[in-house]
Design a protein around this nucleic acid. Structure first.
Length: 318
DNA sequence: GCGTCCAGGTCTACC
DNA sequence: GGTAGACCTGGACGC
């Protein structure tokens, strides 16, 4: 879809805010779309805001301690002032620009592992999409697979079923919408993108959300973490691990891979039978970091290479 | 080249 | 309520 219209907004994030670390996470986590483009200090990405496909061209005009972002938002048609205002609010929030990290940093500086991570990654903010759907599909694609096959499935889903935003001389594919995938039989996605049994989960999830709807990330943030988790666990294909990835309040998503890493950090060795010990590792993380468990998880997995050297441990990279 | 194992979980039937 | 087994597919590995 060609996005001809645009408006520009300047965003002043709460410092410290590192544009480079937030937009392009060290472990490769994207901002809004895995197929977004970053060149010469500019990032072109695409997402859905207020149910509308938008392209966003982002750059930094400030520094980590005096951050200033320039965001050009592209839409199909000119949008009314009220919609424009709402899109700016959502973009600011989804870029983590209104996130105050001071309390987390105060806690982290007293922690033997996190003190290194927050030093290495100062100003890296948590980012999110406006709905749970992209994260939910991503979480399902991650289940029971290695990173190579996960990337094949993810890129195929975006290329075949995502909306394509054409703006500023670029084309960026987004995550598919629930409505699109609700119209696509599981047999097709299984065949086209080799999803295997995940195709059934994604089809059921898409149909449920397309038919019944689901609260936005902002609406979920106003509910209690426990309440949100219970709602997420009601969704097809979403279990404990996936719900902790999606939950905007932040969980501690321990799987086989992260279980090895945090088992090594907490107990000095990788668990011998990691699947059996996932719960023990998870409970220890929550005990140590409480409401900051997600931020702790986020900072550690983005900083594995440096942490391995500083702590003298072999932490398994992605 | 071929066979086997298993991977960044979830669901369901069964006890 | 707890748990074993099934579930798609393809890369890694041993032979």
């Amino acid at each position: 879809m060609r996005l001809h219209s645009s408006f520009t907004v300047r965003i002043r994030p709460i410092p410290p805010y590192s544009f480079e670390l937030t937009v392009r996470k060290p472990a490769g986590w994207p901002l809004f779309s895995p197929l977004e483009i970053s060149e010469g200090g500019i990032t072109w990405t695409a997402t859905h805001l207020e149910g509308e496909l938008v392209g966003i061209k982002l750059s930094s005009k400030g520094s980590v301690d005096r951050p200033l972002l320039n965001a050009e938002v592209f839409t199909k048609k000119p949008v009314p002032e009220s919609v424009r205002k709402r899109m700016i609010e959502m973009t600011t929030h989804e870029l983590g620009a209104d996130e105050d990290l001071s309390e987390f940093y105060a806690m982290a500086r007293q922690d033997p592992f996190l003190k290194h991570a927050v030093d290495d990654l100062r100003g890296m903010h948590n980012t999110m999409t406006s709905t749970i759907f992209p994260d939910a599909v991503l979480a399902i694609l991650l289940q029971m697979t290695g990173t190579k096959r996960f990337e094949q499935m993810m890129n195929c889903m975006l290329a075949k079923y995502g909306d394509r935003a054409e703006f500023d001389g670029r084309q960026i594919a987004t995550w598919p919408t629930p409505e699109k995938l609700a119209r696509t039989p599981a047999s097709e996605t299984k065949k086209t993108c080799n999803l295997g049994y995940r195709g059934d989960h994604i089809y059921k999830l898409s149909n449920k959300i397309a038919a019944d709807g689901f609260p936005s990330m902002e609406e979920l943030e106003k509910l209690s973490p426990v309440e949100v988790k219970e709602m997420l666990l009601e969704l097809p294909g979403i279990g404990d691990y996936s719900a902790d990835i999606i939950n905007p309040h932040g969980g501690f998503p321990i799987d086989v891979w992260s279980g090895d890493i945090f088992g090594m950090l907490f107990f000095g060795k990788e668990p011998e039978h990691v699947k059996k010990e996932l719960d023990r590792v998870k409970q220890e993380g929550i005990r140590r970091w409480g409401k900051w468990s997600w931020h702790a998880f986020f900072y550690v997995v983005q900083d594995l290479e440096s942490l391995s050297k500083k702590l003298g441990m072999q932490l398994r990279l992605q």
